[in-house]
Amino acid sequence: MEKKTDKNSYTIIFAIGMVLLVGALLAFAAESLKPRINENKRLEKQQNILYAMGINENDGSSATFISTDKAPEAFSKYITKQLVIENGKVTENDQAYLIDVKKEQANAKAGKIRRLPLFIGEKDGETYYIAPIRGKGLWDAIWGYVALDANMVVQGAYFDHKGETPGLGANIKERFFMDDFIGEHLLDASGNFKGITVAKGNADPKNDDKTDNEIDAIAGATITGDGVTAMIKSDLKLYKSYFETLKN
């Protein structure tokens, strides 16, 4: 005997009803939470940029941002200028931190001009030049912010990822990895851009040598590490011409 729920017509009606219900539910949830989520993302960008220039609440071995309620105030206090570099032309834009690096990279690929945001921070008389970078890890996107001085020496770095393996690639956002970049040079001795390589079998695991353009890789996270190397190389290189103008 056939049950009511085995009928084809019932199955189809059930499926349609379920899809409409679930679709409406998800659309409603996504729309109503969107403003809050976007606000969280905006604050996170400010926190990331501040983190890279050393304004954070680090305590012990884990990386801690400045709290969300203090972030907007600190951001306007420490970030003195926000620049957009477009084809070598530098303009000021106080919304530059909202530029979507992913979109700009896609523009560059499509042959259009890529806008490069650069944030200038002042802390204790030091000037920091903070640039966003973005690339690919093992599973998904990885990105970060690197704070440089006028000679393109790293003063601080923040990395994040969308879905790297916990315990392995995900450790790029741990302090032991990010802090390794501090003091490392992006240029070689003759001033050419060399980047920083996340190197396996590094002869310098304590990272005493800051001019070797290398930091020690995370065991078991080779592809994520290579992704970090690649995004530093490709994205920070674009800022080199700007840093040359600083010397004159």
Binding site: D6, T11, F14, A15, V22, L25, A29
Partner: peptide, 21 residues
């Protein structure tokens, strides 16, 4: 009320919806 022919899909939809919310 779940039709037995598409019960696996219904289950998937339920768990996916829960997780997304």
């Amino acid at each position: 009320i779940i039709p037995s022919k598409i019960r696996i899909i219904v289950q998937l939809v339920v768990v996916a919806t829960l997780v997304i919310i």
